[in-house]
Design a protein around this nucleic acid. Sequence first.
DNA 1: CATTTGACGCCAA
DNA 2: TTTGGCGCCAAAT
Length: 89
Amino acid sequence: MFEKLDFTNKVHEIVRNIPKGNVLTYKQVAAKAGSPKACRAIGSVLNKNYNLEIPCHRVIRSDNSLGGYNRGSENKRRLLEQEGYEFKD
DNA sequence: CATTTGACGCCAA
DNA sequence: TTTGGCGCCAAAT
């Protein structure tokens, strides 16, 4: 189903399919997109993606760190907390 | 077309 | 455990 989509397009679909209260790491998204080593490319794609319909704030680093956000990292953290995801260890 | 940049990840010191 | 450096991929210059 995703095989015919391009890498960037796959990433958009994958991120869009992340359920509330759940988060994925860049590595996980990259793996689902078909390129486990494209973790950097994921950030590049999401960084340029301005579609609010895509919960790009649910994508975090493999270290359980926030990572970044094109709308403000602080807002990203707030969104995750609001959805029920708690970071801290 | 060649090089650099960037919301990353992993390994070695 | 923390830091530095290298690798990987896509988009921008």
